[in-house]
């Protein structure tokens, strides 16, 4: 379900930016674009085991993330992540979503 546009770079854990756009239809309705997830930024801050496999399954397309899940404290919105004072909060739409307000009437 989760379609990732950026292919994995050859080698080890260098994933760079990953585009999360499996829910792009719903995103369009909400007036936001796909999420560009900076995996490398997170690599610099955390160990693999901090997120994998507890928070995110490593296999692409198996997580079925949605904003609702984030809001309920899963995935990006886990208790020590973007649902806590340690990271920017979930309402900062533009920090993750591209094309925000593109469809705004």
């Amino acid at each position: 379900m989760l379609v990732l546009a950026v292919p994995a770079l050859a080698g080890a854990a260098q994933y760079g930016n990953m585009t999360l756009d499996s829910k792009v239809e719903s995103m369009k309705k909400a007036g936001v674009g796909p999420v560009i997830y900076p995996h490398d930024k997170h690599e610099a801050l955390f160990k693999c085991a901090d997120c994998h496999p507890k928070v995110f399954k490593e296999k692409r397309g198996t997580n079925n993330m949605s904003m609702k899940m984030n809001m309920d404290g899963k995935f990006c919105g886990s208790a020590n992540c973007h649902n806590s004072p340690d990271a920017f909060p979930l309402y900062m739409c533009t920090n993750c979503h591209t094309n925000v307000g593109a469809k705004k009437k």
Binding site: E25, S26, M69
Partner: peptide, 8 residues
Amino acid sequence: PAKGDFVN
């Protein structure tokens, strides 16, 4: 109603 399909 939330605009997206998933959010409450």
